[in-house]
Design a protein around this nucleic acid. Structure first.
Lengths: 220, 220
DNA sequence: TAAAAAATACCGTGATTACGGGATGGTACT
DNA sequence: AGTACCATCCCGTAATCACGGTATTTTTTA
């Protein structure tokens, strides 16, 4: 794996309320000169206060505990990404809390690490993050995929026939009934009938609703 | 990492149209007794014909080329997951074709491998897959995340005013102009004007198009 | 082969939309 | 004080849509 970033020192900060753990991580990087873990905070509030001063330029990578008192790591990610989009954020989590990891990723986190990770694990994750990759282990990658697809795959197709699905697609593309008829070489009336049936099956009564439902539920 | 599945032989099949590559992979597993790569196919059609016979029980893991002649690997995944949901599918791809990898994952693939992967890489991916994890490297994991979170670009809000955005939302919810007017306690004409402006800004000329654009580009 | 499902076609009417025009008061920034 | 922007309102018309019918042909399935 090519490490494009190994040529320079990577500035890394950590937000972790457990003083012991924060120090342990910091110490484990003392013999890693290429990772400069020079700032530690015990809360997001502390972090943002520090970042508020213009002279303090943000780091390359932020290690952030997902469960923090006060502003949680999940909120912290959102805030930090809003103010400093360039910072790559890696979450720390004690256990595989899928829901919180998911929400952190939604808010812009690049990846996450379990707290029992070794210094090497952390180092690799940091390199991944600055290289624009997402340090997520296969177990969580699967969970993330499942969570994403959990909301849509029961792709209930409402019993739409192939023709109806085709017409619904064209509707979503913004074609009028007449255009659809021309496009499919059938009469306007036929398209009208199909669309009537589509509305009935989707339980809607306007094109807008049908388009919204089609897109939201991935019917096409 | 605990490998729950190392205690038994893992039956693996491969679908790959390049005979040379298929054989290379097969040979590289000859000295891996725990992986039983006992069936190779050069197309999905061939695979499904073979699976059609009841006596042929499906394997644990399927290695499938993403770009196949005839039925593509992407369609193959869908079909295979529909008929044999228990099979874990790992895609082979020559280059990092994000769109196709994404669609394969959407169809139920567990992960993917680049074609320059070593036998060890493949072996690890196979173990990940049977363990219910998703063998996806950090680079692609990031791409997948980005695709899911359809990067809401601050660039393209089309200059919609708050009021216009509000009305666009109601439009997406399926309300008619009249209903929107009632809901906002303004006249029909006002809503009509706003929608006219929305259409101009979004460069569309129908409600359907506006709804589609709003949903696809996360304008709301 | 009979029945069911799908695709096709037509009509009429009232509702709704798309879009051209024009107009007014308010806020906000300069 | 001036300008830009926003939200509001009105008119008219041609086009389009929603939806209630009815009906034939083709395809699929039992």
């Amino acid at each position: 794996m090519k490490r494009t970033s190994k040529k320079r020192t990577i500035r890394t900060w950590i937000v972790e309320d457990n003083d012991m753990y924060r120090q342990t991580v910091a110490e484990s990087f003392e013999d890693h000169p290429e990772i400069n873990l020079d700032q530690g905070f015990s809360s997001c509030e502390e972090l943002f206060q520090h970042l508020g001063h213009d002279k303090n330029t943000p780091p390359d990578v932020m290690l952030m505990d997902i469960g923090l008192p006060g502003m949680t790591g999940i909120e912290g990610v959102k805030e930090l990404k809003a103010t400093h989009p360039g910072v790559q954020i890696i979450m720390f989590t004690v256990y595989q809390d899928n829901d919180r990891i998911f929400r952190a990723l939604c808010n812009g986190a690049s990846g996450y690490l379990l707290k029992n990770s070794t210094a090497d694990d952390i180092e690799n994750a940091i390199y991944d993050a600055v290289d624009g990759a997402a340090p997520i282990n296969p177990q969580i990658a699967k969970k993330v995929l499942e969570m994403f697809f959990a909301v849509q795959p029961p792709s209930q197709n409402y019993g739409l026939t192939p023709r109806e699905k085709e017409i619904l697609e064209l509707l979503v593309e913004g074609f009028s009934k007449k255009k659809i008829a021309d496009h499919l070489f059938v009469s306007f009336h036929t398209v009208d009938s199909h669309i009537k049936n589509i509305y009935t099956k989707l339980q809607v009564n306007s094109g807008n609703e049908a388009v919204a439902k089609a897109l939201r539920e991935n019917l096409i």
